[in-house]
Design a protein around this nucleic acid. Structure first.
Lengths: 221, 221, 221, 221
DNA sequence: TAGTAAGCGAGACGGTACGTCATGTCTTGAC
DNA sequence: GTCAAGACATGACGTACCGTCTCGCTTACTA
């Protein structure tokens, strides 16, 4: 979707490139850089196309020629600036890796990236294209990474079988988004450790046979 | 904060009301109602003060006299329209109650209220006052309810001792906010049941002695 | 017209005073004083009822109860402050008196009074009531004075007979209003003297028989 | 000043026009026409930028881009609509020409143009820019015309020598402005004839030696 | 090496909402 | 019945940003 904009549009083996002056790569980068810098500086809500144009020394029309809305410029600027940093190293234990991934993410979201992302999520709520871009460009790739680790954990017997992977990811990372969007005390490592502990072990006291301790009623099914 | 506006402002036992024409209660309600209706109809992002004024047949200046920003009008309209519906019935088992609370909330957030709330949270990101209002007026009161139930569960031995209540709440409700803000498939009862199951029992296979099964490394501490 | 507003409104010989709290004379004066002070300070165009109310420590409604528009308050404030100063002393020669009257008026209009009056005239253009009030309350009384002197001049033979008094007054004082309204160099005594000289003697060279010198055509009739 | 806006701004013989989309001449005219029509219809005091924008089908911002205040739009609209009609034909006798000019002006001011102009003068009192524009764009050019005729009259011996031209113009046209601004009976040809007669011949009875008839005192110097 | 088609800077433009301001009316309780 | 206090409807203000447009200049491949 974003790629479409940069595609050369060649079909089959026709002319290797379209006629006319080619798009200026330097302008493209200048725009994205300016967008990201402004995003960090003033936040998504205060971001304006005019400001991006001014800062990148580019005509407003040039921006509109390539991006349909300010949200998507910002999005792409964010992705361009952030993508390089993504890489989940794999250790041996799945459980340890899951925790490590979570802790790393929590730390990441605690900084500038988190603030910017919260802004993008917020904006995404009123602009489906941003949401889509954010999900496909940022959220999903990371979920795929986590997914791999989770599957490994299940195969190795570390994790309970029969878990729905998507739900597990929601369960692990949900608390992070709660804190990210509703700022109730910045999340720190201690908080993150407590959260992941709960997701790992649950909050219910387990009997030796693996059943939860019950009270009065039949349980919580 | 919001209450200040409606306070009678009397100091000591002097005159029971301030001089001048009293604020019109009917206008106040008309504004809040209009704000909420528009919130439901067009969403926070498309909401305008002009539209609220027009729909409530009130002068724009009257709105600005009482609320500093459109977000706070919307906020108060939302709270006024939503508050009546809040009540968490208590059953016997804490675990069952926690689950019931969660399921109810999930269902609530799946509907109109959820959409509106997502909009408010989004707006709150660019307007701290909205965030504060939302947290103090909506989020915190509900957390208090949940807290009570959780404490009961700990006392009764149903829940693990040594849990940080705030973190537990984050762990339980976080996934809800994740799905609310990043719309990846509407959440239904099945999803909610799976989530709460994870929060209750964790994802890690427990040994009979209550320790997690370990692989290779020392664990996930 | 203005008097109507201040009349006690009693008809016949009924109760010597109307029921209810009598109008506060001090408020009336406070309002007029404040109006005039503000008139001098900020000018007619910047004058606001709110400011008058604030300065005179009176409720806005009180002003509206007694005056129909801000222009008329200002008008009356102006008249109240200015009227005392009007008095045209009479000397012996009508011609000398006319000139003296003109010079005095020119000097008066050159100061604060002139500025304020220009503002009132300007405002009067969009509010007929102000114009009426200004004419009947200020302009006409002075014209009456001048009229008397002019008539004396005609009777004494100093002035040409057959003059239309009103037109003469226009001729004498017109230049003053031109300079007052279209500020092209403040008018000073020298200018005023030159003007009155022209009005007295005309600009056309007179033949000994009193006829104008003619060129080519039949004249200027 | 007004011209600046329409200037091509070219320096030396470089590029004949500045970069960017050129200003739309049709919009400019539409605005000025609308402004003038509204000026005639509702008067200066009731004129609003909103109305001009609506009538000319132009965005409000476009008006503000080119004119700093509603007064100056109106001014320029007035000048644009009026200028074509200005032309003072010259006859033979200076005296006859002066009278003809005066009569024509009186007739002009008695109609729509007069009403509009009175409004502009009134507005000019609270907005120096309007006054300046009016004076330089309308008043002064006409004074120049009259000046020429007056000088001719002096040279030909029809008019007294030693007259200050500016003052003479004030003396001739002053009465017109008096009646224009303080509406005391519309001025008609008869009134105008009487006024110009006074300005020509004066009001004082002239002795055969050219001295005024004196009474009692030494005169009116 | 010249043509040509698209990229691009500059900035005008229509539109919509903003938040403010002054007007004149009203509603209340105190005097 | 007057008055202070102040809420209220109305409607224009001038600003800001959006997204579109119209120019003329620039660029770089292609014939």
């Amino acid at each position: 979707m974003l790629e479409r904009l940069r595609s050369t549009g060649r079909t089959k083996k026709t002319s290797p490139r379209p006629p006319g002056r080619p798009r200026s790569e330097s302008k493209r980068r200048a725009i994205l850089t300016a967008a990201y810098e402004l995003l960090v500086k003033v936040g998504m809500a205060e971001l304006t196309i005019d400001a991006i144009a001014q800062r990148s020394k580019v005509a407003k029309a040039t921006i509109y020629r390539w991006w349909p809305s300010k949200g998507l410029v910002a999005m792409e600027g964010f992705l361009a600036a952030t993508r390089p940093r993504i890489n989940y190293p794999e250790g041996g234990s799945a459980i340890a890796d899951i925790k490590a991934q979570f802790m790393r993410t929590a730390r990441l979201y605690g900084g500038t990236t988190g603030k910017v992302m919260a802004g993008l999520i917020a904006q995404g709520h009123s602009d489906p294209e941003i949401e889509t871009a954010l999900v496909t460009g940022f959220i999903l790739p990371r979920r795929r990474e986590v997914e791999k680790t989770l599957l490994r954990g299940i195969e190795s017997g570390e994790l309970r079988s029969g878990l729905d992977i998507d739900t597990v990811i929601d369960a692990i990372y949900g608390p992070l988004y709660l804190r990210l969007m509703i700022d109730r005390g910045a999340f720190d490592d201690k908080w993150a450790a407590r959260v992941i502990d709960i997701t790992f072990r649950g909050i219910v006291v387990q009997r030796h046979d693996g059943q939860a301790v019950k009270q009065k009623r039949r349980g919580y099914s």
